[in-house]
Structure formats: structure tokens, C-alpha cells
């Protein structure tokens, strides 16, 4: 029972970073990938069909954190209060601006929000790991930027795609450098094995991204960067053994929640997959 909930929390968190990661990347890049207002609108609209579905993985993860891991929720959020507040403020600005952008004025909260969220998650992970926060505050946005650029390479056509591809290629090396530096300057952790495995897989995926981009296998490149965005979170939380039985709710609560989770998750996966499938037909 406990194992099921650890897997579920990891899955929801992974889903959030894999999906919302490219939202923030696109939010940071769309003004550069699109040269005029019409093109920028097109770039953003390549992301927005998935937007509500992407961001809501975080809400679900937070709900599971509260319901099934009440000890961790209080401990983690109070201990990392400032980075969480920063992330949330950025998230509110970004979420609202993407949905309401009726004028280029909205790009201030849109780009600012995306940057705040990306840097904020970096700082937060750096704090939990005990590594240099500045490194993580730069590194995580680099991963999101790469993920966003690969997404745009996959979804766009014409000159905008060329620009997105150039940006994606230029970002692969900095991303590898970040992973290497994160390992080299990492603090003392409880389970160092996680860090080594996570870093090795991340580097392999980034090399894979490079070759997939070169050979035009855009969907494969997207899967590589999506997984790369997930790795830091799972690695850091695993390395510090943040999730233990002591922080979890007791069996009756978990049992009651399990039925709900097992019923809902397949539905969400089915309907989100339907959105992707439909967008393929529409493109």
C-alpha cells in the first residue's frame, strides 16, 4: 500500500515536470522563435491545447502530497518556504498570462512567470540536495529551455522550426555541463547511488537528444528531453530519501484514497492522450 502511493506521487511529479517543463520552455522562448506577433501567436498556440492538462499534474501531486504524505507536506513546504512562495507567485502569473494574453503587454507576466517558476524549481531542488543553489537555479531553466525548444522543433513548421532547432542544438551542451557540475559539486547525500545513476541516465538521454535532432526524429528527441526534465526531481528526492514511511498517512486513509486514485488515473491518461492524438490530426 505504501509503495503504491510512493509510486503515485513520483508519477504525478514526473508527469508535471515532463509536461509543464515544455510549457515554461516555450514561455521563455516564444518571443525569440516567433519574429512577429502573428508568428508568436502560432508558437504559443502550439502549446496551449495541452496547457491546462499539463499544469494540473502539479495540483494532483500537491493533493496526493497532502492526503497521503501529510508529514512530508508540512515539513517540506515549511522548510523550503521561500522557494515555494517564489514558484507559486511565478506560476500564478504564468498560468494567468498564457490564458489571457490578449495583448503583448501580457508577455511581461508570461515570460517573467516562466522564468520565476523555472529558477524557483531549480533553487528548491538545490536546497533539498544541499548543492550550490545558483548552479541549480541556472541548470533547471536550461533543461526546460531545451525541452521547450525540442517541443517547438517537433510541432512547428517553416522558419520558426529552424530557429527552434538551432536553439535546441545550442542548449544540449550546456545541459550536459549542468548535469556534470551537479554531480561534481553535489552536497553530501544519504543515498549517493541515486545521484550517479540519475546523472548517467541524464547524460545518455542528452546525447540521444542530440542524435535524434540531427536525424529529424523529433518525437524521440521530445521523449528524451521530457525524461531529462523528470530526472533531477526524482534523483534529488531519492538521494536525500525524503519520502519515508514516517511521513505517510496511516493505512485507513491510504486505503480510502487508493480506490479514487485507481479510478481516476486511467481516465486522466486516456483523455490527455486523446488531446495529443487529436492535435496530431489537426496539425
Amino acid at each position: 500500500m505504501e509503495g503504491l502511493w510512493v509510486v503515485l506521487l513520483a508519477l504525478l511529479t514526473a508527469g508535471y515536470f515532463a509536461l509543464a517543463g515544455f510549457d515554461y520552455g516555450v514561455g521563455l522562448l516564444f518571443r525569440f522563435v516567433g519574429r512577429d506577433e502573428a508568428e508568436r501567436g502560432r508558437v504559443l498556440r502550439s502549446m496551449t491545447p495541452f496547457f491546462l492538462g499539463n499544469e494540473v499534474w502539479l495540483v494532483a501531486a500537491a493533493g496526493v502530497l497532502f492526503g497521503a504524505f501529510p508529514g512530508l507536506e508540512g515539513e517540506l513546504l515549511s522548510a523550503q518556504r521561500v522557494p515555494f512562495v517564489v514558484v507559486l507567485v511565478g506560476l500564478v502569473a504564468f498560468t494567468a498570462a498564457v490564458q489571457l494574453r490578449s495583448h503583448p503587454w501580457w508577455d511581461v507576466p508570461l515570460v517573467g512567470g516562466a522564468l520565476t517558476v523555472a529558477v524557483g524549481w531549480g533553487l528548491l531542488l538545490g536546497s533539498v540536495l544541499g548543492g550550490p543553489r545558483a548552479l541549480w537555479g541556472i541548470g533547471v531553466p536550461v533543461l526546460f529551455l531545451l525541452h521547450g525548444a525540442v517541443f517547438l522543433t517537433w510541432r512547428l513548421r517553416g522558419p520558426a522550426r529552424e530557429r527552434a532547432t538551432r536553439i535546441a542544438r545550442a542548449l544540449v551542451l550546456p545541459a550536459v555541463a549542468f548535469v556534470a557540475a551537479a554531480v561534481a559539486f553535489g552536497g553530501v547525500v544519504r543515498e549517493p547511488g541515486y545521484g550517479w545513476i540519475g546523472a548517467a541516465v541524464a547524460v545518455a538521454l542528452l546525447v540521444g537528444t542530440w542524435f535524434a535532432l540531427r536525424s529529424g526524429a523529433h518525437r524521440l528527441a521530445f521523449l528524451c528531453t521530457a525524461t531529462t526534465c523528470v530526472l533531477p526531481v526524482l534523483t534529488v528526492f531519492g538521494a536525500q530519501s525524503v519520502v519515508t514511511a514516517g511521513v505517510m498517512a496511516h493505512a485507513p486513509t491510504l486505503r480510502a484514497l487508493s480506490w479514487v486514485a485507481l479510478a481516476v488515473l486511467p481516465l486522466v491518461l486516456l483523455f490527455q492522450w486523446a488531446t495529443w492524438w487529436m492535435s496530431r490530426a489537426a496539425r
Binding site: 491546462l52 492538462g53 499544469e55 494540473v56 499534474w57 495540483v59 494532483a60 500537491a62 493533493g63 496526493v64 497532502f66 492526503g67 497521503a68 501529510p70 508529514g71 507536506e73 508540512g74 498517512a249 496511516h250 485507513p252 486513509t253 480510502a256 484514497l257 479514487v260 486514485a261 481516476v264 488515473l265 481516465l267 486522466v268 483523455f271 490527455q272 488531446t275
Partner: peptide
């Protein structure tokens, strides 16, 4: 958290998660 968190978790999963999707 064991008691109060349960309906809150159900809300995010059943309602918010599905609703946005």
C-alpha cells in the same frame, strides 16, 4: 492530515485533475 487531507486529495484527483483535462 490523515483525515482532512483525504477529501482534499480526492478533490484534486477526481475534480481538479479531471476537470482541467
Amino acid at each position: 492530515g490523515d483525515v482532512f487531507g483525504a477529501p482534499l486529495a480526492v478533490e484534486t484527483l477526481v475534480a481538479f485533475f479531471l476537470e482541467s483535462t
